[in-house]
Amino acid sequence: STKSSGNSASDTCAEFRVKYVGVIEKLQFDMSRTLQEPLDLINYIDAAQQDGRLPFVPGDEDMILGVSKYGVKLASADQCDVLHRHPLYLVVRMLCYDDGLGSGKNLLALKTTDTKQEECSIWVYQCGSSEQAQSICKVLSASFDCALTSGK
C-alpha cells in the first residue's frame, strides 16, 4: 500500500509497508568502495546472512518506511515511534533486488555513511513485491533530484 501525501514530488513523503531484516554497521568507507557494483553488494549481504551477521528472514512485524526529500525513516506500523532515521545527505545508494527465494519479495539494501564519510552501514529491509521496490526507488530518486536542485 503506497500512500503519498502532497502533490509535487518535492514534498512527497511516500510511505511503504516493509519488514526490517538487519544492518551491517561500521564498514570502513574504502572497504565499501568494493561494494559499489550491485552484485558485489548482493554477495556481501548473502555472505553476511550465511555467517550469521544478518538473519535470512526479517522480523514478522510490519513497519512503515517513509521516503521523502528529508531522507528515509523507519517507523513502527502505528507510527508511534521512529526506529531509524537516515538523513538524505547521508544516504549513499539504495539497491533493490529479488530475494531469490521465489516468493517475489524484494530486499532493499540502503547504504548510508557518517558525516565524516569514514564509515558506512548497510541497512537491509524487505518489501512485499518488486513493484513496491520500484516505487520506493522512484520516490528516493525524485528526492535526490529535488535535494540536488534545491540544494544549491
Binding site: Q36, V92, Y97, L140, F144
Partner: peptide, 17 residues
C-alpha cells in the same frame, strides 16, 4: 540465482563512491 531486476538508486552527491 538473482536473475530478476536489480535496481540501484545512487545519491548524486556520492556518484562513484
Amino acid at each position: 540465482i538473482y536473475k530478476s531486476a536489480v535496481t540501484t538508486v545512487v545519491n548524486p552527491k556520492y556518484e562513484g563512491k
